[in-house]
């Protein structure tokens, strides 16, 4: 039995209360409990986190890099979704 038999986990760390969990990296572990402990030792040795999520890498569905352009294209031609699109007379406040 080798390490390869241990599945890969993605680690997400909340650095402090009020912030969302952010992807920190990945690691191998035999089960979720070990993955959590390993993640603590690997990614929070200096108090970098107050909460950890571990997710089996195989459970993640990702968008395909091949379809990157058509997939995200619909957002590209809609500048009116940004506040800077609108012209407001000078002097108008709180807008």
């Amino acid at each position: 039995m080798t390490n390869t038999d241990w599945p890969l986990w993605e680690v997400f760390v909340r650095s402090r209360r009020g912030l969302s969990h952010t992807h920190a990296g990945s690691l191998h572990a035999p089960d979720a409990e070990f993955a959590l402990r390993n993640a603590r030792d690997l990614y929070t040795r200096r108090g970098e986190g107050v909460s950890i999520w571990v997710v089996p890498s195989s459970a993640i569905t990702a968008s395909s890099p091949d379809e990157k352009d058509p997939f995200f294209e619909p957002a590209a031609d809609k500048p009116y979704r940004h506040p800077t699109f609108y012209e407001i007379p000078e002097g108008v406040k709180h807008l």
Partner: peptide, 12 residues
């Protein structure tokens, strides 16, 4: 490593 994997297998 073997013990941990066996434990995980049994657990699941």
């Amino acid at each position: 490593r073997e013990a941990a994997a066996a434990y995980a297998a049994k657990h699941s």
